[in-house]
């Protein structure tokens, strides 16, 4: 295949993956729409649903009965929608991967697919999806599905509509092995921080919801979210993974490369400044989790501030500071 054909393939694959992410999002929304009437323990206990629920809800017999009547069917459908959504996400991720890979193959000479913003966003979202799929089983991330697919779909739409660039060769300063080391680390950390941020959003939403006393609710999306402790743990684990990776990307690999390319390992370039800000905010997050009075909600808010600075750095810097940044290509 020629370079031009690969470029074309990449453009088609990104459209295909967009469609599949959309379908996956729809399937997951359907899953949760159906799930509104399915009690939490319905799916977990499978065939013995009726008895479990009836036993659990000793008091409100009438309500319970109606729920149980619907639920055998709905629980099935909910599970099916969920499975379909997951499969569609996998298909979308494959198309996404093809789009990213062929983008790299489209350049002459062949290169890594993150030479500019369009490609960087494309690859970054792929890492979010891969992270989500990799952790899906271990952390039972079913509840995160609509968030992830929605986020990736919207980000890719913005990417294709606003940031699209034809394939071009790399700028001179990008000709370095550090392009792979520095950027892969940065994208990995960005993906993990993003998933951690999603868990923090859910934490805040669920905490607010619990405050208005829904402890008795046994159905619906928010009831089905993991408990606050688990959400907090998921956020902590992903961020604790992302933080050292980010440290390496922004404060070790970046400076080494900058030293070689620009003759200065740290020059307070806007992108460097914001990478530093992100680092400081997440450092604060890790400290806050260990501090009385800052645990839980405050920590979740700090994580979201950190995530905001990360994405602002990722996209905002280029729009607001443009040529003022030596990182204006990424």
């Amino acid at each position: 295949m020629s370079h031009t054909q690969f470029a074309l393939l990449s453009n088609q694959a990104i459209a295909v993956c967009g469609v599949f992410y959309f379908l996956a999002l729809m399937a997951h929304l359907a899953e949760w729409a159906v799930g509104r009437t399915v009690p939490i323990d319905a799916i977990a206990s499978g065939a013995s649903t009726t008895t479990t629920v009836a036993a659990a809800e000793g008091g409100g017999t009438t309500v319970t009965d109606t729920l149980v009547d619907v639920d055998d069917d709905s629980a099935d459908r909910m599970e099916r929608f969920g499975r379909v959504g997951l499969m569609l996400t996998v298909v979308a991720a494959l198309a996404h991967f093809v789009a990213v890979a062929s983008r790299g193959l489209a350049a002459d000479p062949v290169r890594v697919p993150w030479g500019n913003m369009y490609e960087f966003t494309m690859t970054g979202t792929l890492f979010v999806v891969i992270g989500y799929l990799a952790l899906y089983r271990r952390y039972k991330l079913g509840w995160l599905a609509p968030v992830v697919t929605g986020f990736v779909l919207i980000t890719l739409m913005v990417d294709v509509l606003l940031l699209y660039t034809p394939v071009v060769q790399l700028r001179d300063s990008l000709h370095s092995p550090w392009l792979i080391i520095h950027v892969v680390a940065a994208i990995t950390a960005t993906g993990a921080f993003t998933i951690g941020g999603m868990a923090s959003v859910m934490y805040l939403i669920k905490a607010r919801w619990l405050e208005t006393d829904h402890t008795g609710d046994k159905a619906g999306y928010l009831a089905r979210l993991p408990g606050l402790v688990q959400l907090d743990q998921l956020a902590y684990r992903t961020i604790a993974f992302a933080f050292p990776v980010w440290t390496f990307a922004a404060l070790i690999a970046g400076p080494i490369w900058a030293q070689a390319a620009w003759g200065k390992y740290w020059g307070w370039d806007p992108k460097e400044v914001w990478a530093f800000i992100t680092w400081v905010v997440f450092a604060a997050y890790l400290h806050a989790r260990a501090t009385a009075g800052w645990k839980g909600r405050a920590a979740a808010i700090i994580a979201l501030i950190g995530l905001a600075t990360l994405w602002f750095n990722f996209i905002g810097i280029n729009f607001f500071f443009g040529s003022g940044s030596q990182h204006s290509y990424a």
Binding site: W268, P270, V273, W274, F276, I277, V280, V281, A283, A284, H287, A288, A290, T291, G293, W294, T309, I317, F321
Partner: peptide
Amino acid sequence: SMRTALILLFLLALGAVPGS
């Protein structure tokens, strides 16, 4: 104290903004 350290971390992040 940790609280002061946290506040200083935020100030550091905030203080870095105008430079960009």
